[in-house]
């Protein structure tokens, strides 16, 4: 079965493909890939450049004498910070940890209700979520600030975590993914006497692992980039991203450590994506809008 399928695939691949067309498209692609990759290549190389190479004229993209000095400089700088760096790391850990876990659980529970259960108001709720994909956070930024103040959670982790829990992209993707779980599977669970919570937790959740990994990665990316500066004022509650940002702004004397910071900020989300790429792609196959 598998073998015939593969043969079929290869045959299908060659349909309607000309050598000239392949060449043109792949050349365009290679050119664009270089354009896309170059800035990232620069980030990697800059982080490995000794200070004299960073400040050289004319600038060179590739490093000549790679060293890890920038990272050890960064490490020394971290030690001199008056709020210990371990504290910033802990803050980021708490914010991304709670924000990501909470989002996956809340969004999945709501997604299960929207995808598989019948209740009045269901379509309106889903339409609102779809509508909210159509505008960006800038629209709600000012009222959000006031609401956070009214709730009295200004300058706490909650000010960053709570709004993130209800991000709409996660709910949308999860709902589309849960929809393809066969109803018969859920029905047989129900006949066995399982309540909706049991079904959600023991049947749905284990079956949508690619989707919750996707939600987790997207959420992590959003929270990782958050400096928390709008809501968190206390230095000791700020996330790593903020502390690292301070180092980048340190000017020429900190250019080396700054380059190391740039590398770390970019590398971590990319690393997470590499690990979970196949799961994310699987989730996105169900992301389509069916009117």
């Amino acid at each position: 079965m598998a073998a015939t399928k593969r043969v079929k695939k290869r045959k299908a691949k060659q349909l309607n493909r000309s050598v000239a067309g392949n060449t043109v498209l792949f050349v365009i692609m290679a050119f664009c890939a270089v354009f896309m990759a170059l800035p990232l290549v620069m980030i990697v190389n800059n982080s490995l450049k000794p200070l004299d190479e960073i400040l050289r004229y004319p600038p060179k993209i590739l490093v000549e004498n790679p060293s890890l000095d920038n990272f050890s400089d960064l490490f020394v700088l971290m030690k001199t910070s008056w709020v210990p760096f371990s504290r910033f790391i802990l803050n980021t850990f708490i914010i991304t940890g709670l924000g990501t876990t909470g989002h996956v659980i809340l969004a999945s529970a709501a997604a299960y209700a929207l995808a598989k259960l019948e209740f009045p108001g269901k379509n309106v709720l889903f339409q609102m979520v779809v509508l909210s994909l159509m505008f960006s956070a800038a629209v709600t930024a000012i009222p959000n600030y006031m609401i956070v103040s009214w709730l009295g959670i200004n300058d706490t982790y909650a000010a960053v975590i709570l709004p993130a829990l209800a991000s709409s992209l996660g709910l949308y993707l999860m709902k589309q993914f849960i929809e393809q779980i066969p109803d018969s599977l859920i029905e047989s669970c129900r006949l066995d006497g399982a309540g909706e919570f049991r079904i959600f937790w023991t049947l749905i959740m284990p079956n949508v692992k690619p989707a919750w990994l996707t939600l987790a990665i997207f959420q992590f990316q959003a929270l990782w980039g958050n400096t928390g500066s709008t809501f968190i004022r206390s230095e000791q509650l700020k996330p790593l991203q903020y502390a690292l940002g301070q180092i980048v702004q340190g000017g020429v004397s900190r250019a080396g450590a700054g380059a190391a910071v740039q590398f770390i900020i970019a590398a971590i989300p990319i690393l997470f994506f590499i690990i979970s790429q196949s799961n994310i792609i699987e989730t996105m196959t169900t992301s389509g809008m069916k009117d």
């Binding site: 809340l106 969004a107 529970a109 709501a110 299960y112 209700a113 929207l114 259960l117 019948e118 209740f119 269901k122 709720l125 609102m128 979520v129 909210s132 709600t140 959000n144 609401i147 709730l151 709570l162 709004p163 829990l165 209800a166 709409s168 709910l171 309540g195 909706e196 919570f197 959600f200």
Partner: peptide
């Protein structure tokens, strides 16, 4: 049960988006 499952998410969604 559906409302109970959807409530935590949608309470936050209403508070911070709607």
């Amino acid at each position: 049960p559906a409302y109970a499952l959807a409530a935590p998410y949608f309470i936050l969604f209403f508070t911070f988006t709607v």
